[in-house]
Design a protein around this nucleic acid. Structure first.
Ligand code: ZN
Ligand code: ZN
Ligand code: ZN
Ligand code: ZN
Lengths: 607, 607
DNA sequence: CCGCCATTATCGCCGGTAGT
DNA sequence: ACTACCGGCGATAATGGCGG
C-alpha cells in the first residue's frame, strides 16, 4: 500500500493550495480556495468577484519580497524628497557593522524625515551646485566614496565588465553619473562582505532602483546637451546592472539591460573605429539621426570606448543566446572597432586633435553634413569577420577583454550555425554549411589551444594568479561553450563531435575554479553534456558488449571497456567538482545545483 | 531559595528562545541567543554590544509590520509624486474643450486622498489586504480614465504599435500596469490636442519618467511573482515609450527602448509559436533560465502575444538599422510565431487547455524538467525564413500588422545584404550572394505590387479611408525603403538598380500623404535617392549629349533627352511634396527639412 | 462561520569546519 | 584555544481548509 500520500486518486480533490496562495476572501471564510485567477471559484459562486484578491505570495519568502519592496519604496521616497540626486548611500560595512535591519523607524514616527539622507557625505559643501550641470546629475560630490568603492572593485573589474578607466574615475574632479555611482556602491558593498543579509538586500534594491531611474531620466532628456562622457557612464551602469541581475537570478532583467547597453553602444557608434570617417551610408544623409560622440580626447578615452563596445558585445552574446535569444547583432554588421588590446601606450594620443573646447555631442542636426562625401576609402576592416575567417590569428596583442570578446564571437557564431541547422537540417548537406562548420571548428580548436592552460593560472583551488586572470578563465569557459554549442547537435550521431563536446566540458570544468559565476549557459551546458555522456557510457556498459563498439572504439583506441571505465571516472569526478563549486555560489545557482543533483541519482555512489 | 529569575539552574541548556526573539546579530551568526536585554550574552562576549538589536515592535507577525510599513511608504510616494506627477492629473480635453493653457489640474491640492489604491475593495474587512498586489503596481483604479484614453488612441493604434486588445484593456476589472497607464495618458494627451504648450511638456516628461520608473521596478523584482500579463503590458509600455521618444527626436532613447522591448519579447519566447513544445535546446536543461509564460488563456491573449512580437520586431527593425545598427536579430534565429493574421476567429481557442488555475510564471527552477525529452518533432516552421525564400506568397490572411512585419523583414534582409556587400565587395561575385540578391529583389517587387495602391487609400490629401490603412501606407513606405536599401549600393553603376531606387522612392512619396511620421530612415532615404537622381540628371543634361546615353536610354526607351526632362520634373515634384509634408511634422523633422532644402538650391526654381 | 487539526514555511541554533 | 561561519535539522508559528 502506498504510504497513503495525499490520496492522489481519481477526482484528485486538488492537493491543498500552496501556502500563501489562497485568495483573501477564502482565507477569511476559511474555505477551500482553488486559487483560480482572476476570481476563484468560491468567490465566483458566492458572487463576490470583487472581493477575490490575492496576496500573491511569490516563491521567495514572503518577508523578503516585502522587505525588498519597502526598500525600493524607500529609495523612491528619498529620490522624490530630494530631487537632486541623492545616492541612497549605505556605507560599506567593513565586514560586519550592524546593518540595523529594516528600520521599523518609519512606522513609529510618521512625521520624521522619513529616511533622511543618512550619510549625505559632503552634500552640504555644494548646496546649490545642483543646477542643470551639463547632464550630470550632480558633480563630483562624494568622491572619496567612489574611491573606496573602486578600491574594492578594481580586482574584479574584468568580471564586472568595468571598462571605464579606474584611475580617471577616482580622480578628484571627474564627474560621475549618479546612477553609475549607485551601482559602484552596490557592487562594492556586495563584494566587500559576501554574506548577504536582509538589510543588504534592502540597500541593494534601493541602489539598483536609483541607478535605473537615473538612466531613464538621462535618456529622455535631449541628448545633445549631455557631456559625451555621460553616455559611457550610462553604458557602464547598464553593464553593472545587468551583471547584478544575472547574479541575482533575474535573467530577464539581465538581458533587458544587456541589450539596452548594446543598443546604446551601437547607437553611439562605438563599434566603428574612432576617427574613421563614417561611411557614406545610405542613412547618413544630412545626419538626421543619432547623436555622435566627439572624437576621444586621448588614448585613455579611446581605450574606454573600445573596451566599452567589446564589453557590451560580449555581455550581450553571453546572455543573449540562451533559448535561442537573438544574438543581438549578426555578423553582417560591420564592426571596425579594433579588438581591445593590452597596450595602448603606443597608440598616439590623437595628435591632430587639439583639445576640443566644446565637448558637447554633435547632434546630427547641427553637424556639417558629410553628405555624399564618399568615405575617403579607408580600408575598413570588419574586425569580427576577419577573425572568423581565420585571417586574424594573432592573439599576442589582445588584452584579456580582447580574448573574451573573441571567445564570445566564437560562441555566437557557433550558436548561429547550430541554430541554422536546427531550423533546417537539410543545410547539413550544403557545402557552404559544412565549410562554415569546419572552419569554426578549427578556429575554436586553435583558439582554445592558444589560451593559457588553467593550471598556469589557478595556483590553488580558489586562488588565481594575475588578478585579471579570472577573465582568462571565463574566456576558457566561453570557448569551451562555443565548442559544445557547435558540436552538440551532432554528438549523438557523430563520434568526433561527441568527443569534442566532452573535451570542451572537461576543459571548462578545469577552468572553473577561479571563476566567480560563469553564468547559466555554462552551467547548463556543462551539466548537460557531462550528464548525457555519463548516461551514454552507463547504458553502454550495462548493455555490455552488445553496445555499438564501433562508436565507442572510435573514441579511444584502447579497449573500449577499460576506456569507458576510465572516462566514466573522469566524468564523475568532473561532475562532483561542479557540484562542489556550485554549492558555493549564489542562490539561483545553488537551486540549479539541487535540481541537477536530483537528475543524477547514479552519482550517489560516487560522492 | 530565591525564586530569583532566569537562572535556570546550571545543566539545563535553556529552551530555545521563542520565535522572533533572538537578537539580530545572533540571527545572522546563527548562534544561540539568550535574548538578554539590552545586550545579549553572546553579543556581550563578542564585544559588539552596539550590534545587539532586537526587532521588537508588535507582537504581531513581522510580515504584518512590514506590510504596514510598505503601505505607509507607498502613500508617501504617492504624496510626493502627486504634486507634479500624479497620473490622472491631465485631463484629456475631448477634442474641443477649452484647453485653457496651463492645466490647473491637481497641482493645487497636494493633500488630497493621496491617490491610494482607491478601490481597495473592502480592505477594511481583512487586516492584511494591503499586501503586494500581484505585481501590478496597483490594481484597477482609475479605469474610466483608461477608457477615455483608449477612445482617443484607438484610431491610431497601428501607428503607436498598440497591440494589446483595446476592449480588454477597457474592461472594468482588467488591472493595468501603471507604467502603461502613464504612457496611454501621455499619448492620448498628445493626440487629442496637438498643440503642445509648456504645461503639457511638463506632464509629458512626468508621465514618461513615471512609466520608465515603473518598468525598471517591475523588472528588478522576482519575475516569478508577476502576473504574466504584466509582461505584455511592460512590452506595450516600452513600445509606446519608444514611439514617443522617436517623435520627440530622441532616437537614441527610442532605440534603447525598442531593443529593450525586443529583448523582453524574445526572452519571454514570444517568437515561438505558442503551445509549441520548447525545443530541446542545449540550454533548456533543467530549465535554468528565463521565466516562461503560461499558455495563453484564449484566442485574444494569443493574438496579443503574436502581435506583440511582431510589433516589437518591426519597431526594432525600423529603428535599428540606421547607421548599420544591429538588426537585433538575424535570420538564423528560429521564429515560429505565426504572422499576425486578421482573423483569429478560426483559431480555435486552445481546446486542450482548461483554464489554468495558476497563472503565475513558471520560473525555470520549478517547472518539471523536460530534460532530454526530445521535442515531439512538431514541424516547426521558420516563419521568416519561409517568407524570405518565397514559399509564403499568400498575403490574404495578413492583418495590416502582418504586412508591416513582412515589410520589415524585407527591409532588414535588404540591409543585411547591403551590409554584407559593403563589408566585402568581393562577395558580389559569389553566386550565393547573387541569388540572395535576386530572390529578395523579386520578392520585394512582388510584395510591393501586392499591396493596395496608395490611391485606393488616400481619399484626399490627409484623409485616408479605413482607419487602419495608415499602417498600410507605412508598409508601402517600408517596402520602398527595402527596395532602395537593396539597390542603392549598385545604383551608380547599374542602371536597373538605379531605376528600382527611383521607382521605390516615388512610390513611397505617393504613400506619404496619410502617414504621420515614417521615421528618419525613410525621410533620409527618400531625400537622398531623389536628390542624387536629380543631381545625376542635371549633370547629365548639362554635359549634354556627351553623356553616357547608353545608361540613360536603358532607363527609358524614348528619347533620352525628353525622358530625362520628364523624369526630372517628376522628381522635383516629389521633392516638393516631401517638403510640404515634412513642414507639417514635428520639430526634428522640420529641422531636417530645412537642412535638406539647403542642399538643393536648384529647387528654388521649382517651388 | 469558526474550532481545530494537518501541513508547512520559518527560524532558532547545533555542531562540523576554517581561520587565526 | 577561541571565534566566526554556515549546512542543515528540528521545533513551531502560521495557514489551509474540514466538518460541525
Ligand atoms: Zn478563493
Ligand atoms: Zn476568491
Ligand atoms: Zn543574541
Ligand atoms: Zn545580541
Amino acid at each position: 500500500m502506498s504510504i497513503a500520500g495525499p490520496s492522489r486518486d481519481i477526482g484528485s480533490p486538488s492537493p491543498p493550495l500552496q501556502r500563501g496562495k489562497a485568495c483573501l476572501s477564502c482565507r477569511r471564510r476559511k474555505m477551500k480556495c482553488d486559487g483560480m485567477r482572476p476570481t476563484c471559484t468560491q468567490c465566483t459562486r458566492g458572487d463576490r468577484a470583487e472581493d477575490c484578491e490575492y496576496t500573491d505570495g511569490s516563491r521567495r519568502p514572503r518577508t523578503l519580497v516585502l522587505e525588498e519592496d519597502i526598500a525600493r519604496l524607500r529609495a523612491r521616497v528619498q529620490e522624490l524628497e530630494n530631487p537632486q540626486n541623492v545616492i541612497p548611500s549605505i556605507e560599506l560595512y567593513p565586514p560586519y557593522t550592524s546593518p540595523s535591519t529594516a528600520g521599523p523607524s518609519v512606522a513609529q514616527t510618521p512625521y520624521q524625515p522619513l529616511m533622511e539622507p543618512p550619510s549625505m557625505s559632503l552634500s552640504t559643501s555644494s548646496p546649490a551646485t545642483s543646477s542643470t550641470d551639463s547632464g550630470w546629475g550632480f558633480d563630483g560630490s562624494p568622491q572619496r566614496n567612489v574611491q573606496q568603492c573602486l578600491t574594492v572593485l578594481a580586482p574584479h573589474a574584468a568580471e564586472l565588465g568595468l571598462f571605464l578607466n579606474i584611475d580617471r574615475l577616482c580622480a578628484q574632479n571627474t564627474p560621475i553619473f549618479p546612477g553609475l555611482h549607485s551601482m559602484l556602491m552596490l557592487w562594492s558593498a556586495y563584494l566587500s562582505q559576501r554574506h548577504l543579509d536582509v538589510s543588504e538586500q534592502n540597500s541593494e534594491s534601493a541602489l539598483l532602483s536609483h541607478a535605473q531611474h537615473q538612466i531613464s531620466n538621462a535618456l529622455s532628456v535631449d541628448s545633445s546637451t549631455q557631456d559625451p562622457q555621460v553616455f559611457l557612464h550610462i553604458i557602464q551602469t547598464e553593464v553593472l546592472i545587468s551583471c547584478h541581475l544575472q547574479r541575482a537570478g533575474e535573467p530577464l532583467g539581465a538581458r533587458y539591460h544587456a541589450s539596452a547597453a548594446l543598443s546604446l553602444a551601437v547607437g553611439l557608434r562605438l563599434h566603428i573605429k574612432s576617427g574613421e570617417a563614417p561611411s557614406a551610408h545610405l542613412f547618413d544623409f544630412v545626419g538626421y539621426s543619432y547623436p555622435q560622440l566627439p572624437p576621444p580626447l586621448d588614448g585613455i578615452e579611446e581605450k574606454e570606448r573600445v573596451d566599452a563596445f567589446w564589453t557590451v558585445y560580449s555581455l550581450d552574446r553571453c546572455l543573449g543566446d540562451i533559448y535561442n535569444g537573438p544574438p543581438g547583432m549578426n555578423h553582417a554588421i560591420m564592426i571596425t572597432a579594433p579588438w581591445p588590446s593590452s597596450d595602448w601606450s603606443n597608440e598616439v594620443t590623437h595628435p591632430s586633435l587639439s583639445r576640443r573646447s566644446d565637448r558637447s555631442l554633435t547632434n546630427g542636426y547641427q553637424g556639417q553634413s558629410n553628405f555624399m562625401t564618399p568615405s575617403t576609402n579607408v580600408t575598413n576592416i570588419n574586425t569580427v569577420l576577419q577573425f572568423l575567417t581565420g585571417q586574424d590569428r594573432d592573439l599576442s596583442n589582445d588584452s584579456p577583454l580582447g580574448l573574451q570578446a573573441k571567445a564570445s564571437v566564437l560562441f555566437s557564431e557557433a550558436a548561429s550555425i547550430a541554430a541554422s541547422y536546427a531550423a533546417d537540417p537539410t543545410v547539413g548537406q550544403s557545402p557552404a554549411f559544412r565549410s562554415r562548420f569546419a572552419t569554426l571548428g578549427n578556429l575554436i580548436q586553435w583558439f582554445s589551444a592558444s589560451l593559457p592552460p588553467p593550471s598556469s593560472i589557478i595556483i590553488a583551488p580558489g586562488i588565481i594568479q594575475p588578478s585579471n586572470a579570472r577573465q582568462v578563465l571565463l574566456t576558457i569557459n566561453l570557448t569551451a561553450l562555443a565548442q559544445i554549442t557547435l558540436h552538440r547537435t551532432f554528438a549523438p550521431t557523430h563520434a568526433p563531435s561527441n568527443k569534442r563536446c566532452i573535451e570542451g566540458a572537461l576543459r571548462a570544468v578545469r577552468a572553473l575554479d577561479g571563476v566567480s559565476d560563469p553564468g547559466p549557459m555554462i552551467w547548463t551546458a556543462l551539466c548537460r553534456v557531462l550528464h548525457d555522456e555519463l548516461v551514454r557510457l552507463r547504458s553502454q556498459a550495462s548493455s555490455s558488449s552488445t553496445a555499438d563498439t564501433t562508436y565507442a572504439s572510435s573514441l579511444h583506441a584502447t579497449s573500449p571497456q577499460a576506456a569507458n571505465r576510465e572516462e566514466e571516472a573522469e566524468i564523475s569526478l568532473a561532475i562532483s567538482k561542479i557540484f562542489s563549486i556550485m554549492s558555493k555560489m549564489t542562490c539561483p545557482v545553488k537551486t540549479f545545483a539541487v535540481k541537477f543533483k536530483a537528475m543524477i541519482p547514479a552519482l550517489d555512489s560516487i560522492n
